[in-house]
């Protein structure tokens, strides 16, 4: 039951079907990568899982440790243990990173319970050091004026602080130079373990050199068309995506 199980998920934007009977199971403790060409529905999958209101689930199930989360709001899903690292994280003017993460952690506590501020900051600084984020960042507004690398590190910082059971990283490598990519990858790797299942969504293989997946899935036209070991990523890198079209069931 310690799985994130996506069963025959169909998702539309407006009238347009994007995900078509998408099925995938991510066991806790594993890192799965989804690769695929642009426009194949990778980001739709991430947003639908997170509960974005613009994406309509027409049928299917998403079971988080056996519980269907599709009927719940985005905030409930997050509190249930699902995390999404955004491809394009929003800027929140006037809200500092420290206050933002604090509010997110506070929302996980029972009514009337207060977050221990000392323990919170201790943990925050520890995770920031790990991600090589300057401590001055805590007083900066969330993502405001951040570089691409800073935004992505901030996403991983939130992930480290919120300790989800399952994390969906949507194109976390986009906008990162090689140094920034390495830092972000190190951060993700440090969080890997038996308590976390990861779904990495990426267009390029280079991320997978640093975060080595247990399983690689190839996505095309709203569904998974091939799955295999990490070497599959290299095959995609050398052959491109054209050949995957032939794998689509008629």
């Amino acid at each position: 039951m310690s799985t994130l199980e996506i069963k025959n998920l169909n998702v539309s934007i407006g009238d347009r079907p994007i995900l078509k009977d998408f099925t995938l199971t991510i066991p806790k403790g594993e890192v799965h990568a989804i690769m695929g060409p642009n426009g194949t529905g990778k980001s739709t999958l991430a947003k639908a899982l997170a509960g974005h209101p613009d994406y309509t689930v027409t049928s299917g199930e998403v079971l988080l440790d056996g519980k269907n989360i599709l009927e719940t709001e985005a905030d409930e899903r997050s509190r249930a243990g699902l995390f999404m690292a955004f491809q394009y994280p929003s800027e929140i003017p006037g809200v500092t990173i420290a206050n933002f993460i604090r509010a997110a952690l506070q929302s996980r506590l029972a009514e009337g319970e207060e977050l221990d501020a000392t323990a919170y900051y201790k943990k925050l600084y520890q995770k920031m050091d790990l991600l090589k984020i300057d401590r001055k960042f805590t007083s900066r507004a969330v993502n405001e004026g951040f570089s691409g690398g800073e935004k992505k590190r901030c996403e991983i910082l939130q992930m480290a602080m919120l300790e989800p059971s399952y994390a969906v990283l949507d194109e976390t490598d986009s906008g990162l130079d090689i140094d920034a990519l390495r830092i972000v990858a190190d951060g993700v790797n440090s969080l890997r373990g038996a308590k976390l299942g990861v779904l990495l969504i990426t267009h390029y293989q280079r991320l997978l050199n640093y975060i080595v997946p247990d399983v690689v899935h190839v996505m095309y036209d709203g569904r998974i068309v091939k799955s295999g070991p990490k070497e599959l990523a290299l095959e995609l890198e050398s052959k491109g995506y054209d050949w995957v079209k032939d794998l689509v069931p008629a």
Binding site: G51, A74, D75, S78, I92
Partner: peptide
């Protein structure tokens, strides 16, 4: 921005307050 906050587990009322 609202969705970003919700996706971190912050409910709508608290998100509004933070805004």
């Amino acid at each position: 921005e609202l969705f970003y906050m919700l996706a971190r587990g912050i409910n709508k009322a608290v998100a509004r307050e933070l805004f």
